[in-house]
Nucleic acid binder design. Structure first.
Lengths: 238, 238
DNA sequence: CGTGTTATTGAAGTGTATCAAATTGCGTGG
DNA sequence: CCACGCAATTTGATACACTTCAATAACACG
């Protein structure tokens, strides 16, 4: 049953492809309250692919024709600012969705989606997704809640980008990234792209944190040693 | 017929209060494709108030129990960063809605809504609004499009806050504010709160723009004299 | 095993915030 | 309608946090 398309560098659907009912059990999944028949409907129309590390799901500027649902692995959504600085907008793991904002806004993708590790991702066609929303108003409300929370977070981040110092943003970033993606080996560059600063500043700040006993660096790994101090820094402090 | 409630500094409902069918004709209004009966349903359950200049509709931290729809006037949504710096998150005029994000996310308001001039605003109860969404899936999709565009704009602004210089953000800000709210007498402070900088930097930058012939300042008013130059600055430039 | 990316350290420059003080202008109340 | 008071504007001086550029070292990946 497994088909390999040599022109496309992705591994195609296998006979044991992920089923929506499994993803729907994951916490905070959009589809968790849909009836079985609806999940089966998605199963039938979706396309599942496994992406290798650093492979892209879609590019900034592409036009959406469906949404992506991450079954396993980790996918980051990143974009490039005017001066060539990268920015990580979101990081999505199992059960999370991707690409819905552009779909609803009817705009091209704002960022490029890249698998940070081998990841299996389902693509649900636009027509299937929209008809589900029309059929199940609770789904619409759930998506609205999902997007609304993300909008709140985006506005909060925006304010922090101007109000907080680089040190504060870095403190908050390593806490956030460690808390939500514990086993992800974040590079200094990626931390800077999340915190909105440069790798050099991250470097020096981390060294500074280590001197103060806030963290322990083992090679490239970071261990939180004094969460309270970092939290204080992140929330405010001179 | 006009009633004044001395305890509440707002002018209360008049017999000629605004009707939804009028607002629905305004461009980009959320309710523009709803049937007449639905609009009448909103008319019956909404509460209309006229706010004086600088009066607040709701405070940051308040809990939403409906959405606000601006009938006339201008309302700004602002918030205060950790270090006391104000930020203007949105500006809403006739036909626009306010407070829906917090409602859907089930979170307290993220900002304080303030009338920038005498403004008439309708408040639609949560129950009415949610039942409408469940009844009219197209409304849900329209709101999704609305929020999605706002989310895109918020992310874009976030990136610009870190990537662009203060000069570039100010150039972009005065273009945006002039284009969208031509007759609003923006103060230097408000411009700084939109651009994410300080009033002093706005001052000096505007003086600089005037020296270069990009704008003309007449008292506190700003006239765009060289749109192209400002656009170039805003989009990129060293 | 090589090659390109990431990490690391150093030095230098500067864009902006910050603080202070004077002036103007607007809104409010008398 | 005028006068008052407070907020916004304006200008100057200062400081420093951060970016930028550069060059080497260490690592990861094919």
């Amino acid at each position: 049953m497994a088909q390999i398309d040599p022109k496309n560098s992705t591994v195609c659907v296998r006979h044991n492809e992920p089923q929506c009912k499994n993803c729907s059990k994951k916490s905070n999944n959009l589809f968790s309250h849909l009836p079985q028949e609806a999940l089966k409907h998605i199963d039938e129309s979706k396309i599942t692919k496994t992406y290798k590390k650093n492979e892209t799901l879609f590019l900034s500027g592409d036009h959406p024709n469906g949404i992506y649902c991450v079954s396993s692995g980790t996918v980051k959504l990143e974009t490039e600012g005017a001066r060539g600085h990268g920015h990580i907008l979101r990081v999505v793991q199992g059960g999370g969705v991707l690409g819905y904002r552009s779909l609803f806004a009817d705009e091209p993708y704002q960022g490029t989606a890249i698998a940070m590790e081998e990841s299996t991702v389902c693509h649900i066609p636009k027509t299937t997704f929209l008809s589900l929303i029309k059929k199940f108003p609770e789904l619409a409300l759930k998506i609205l809640a999902y997007i609304s929370k993300e909008l709140g977070a985006a506005k909060g981040r925006m304010i922090k980008m101007t109000d907080q110092s680089a040190i504060e943003r870095i403190a908050e970033s390593i806490l956030f990234l460690k808390d939500n993606f514990e086993y992800e080996p974040w590079t200094r560059k990626e931390i800077s792209e999340w915190a909105g600063t440069t790798p050099e500043t991250v470097m020096r700040t981390l060294a500074n944190f280590e001197d103060q006993g806030f963290i322990i660096q083992i090679g490239r790994k970071i261990q939180i040693a004094n969460r309270k101090a970092l939290l204080e820094l992140a929330n405010l402090e001179h």
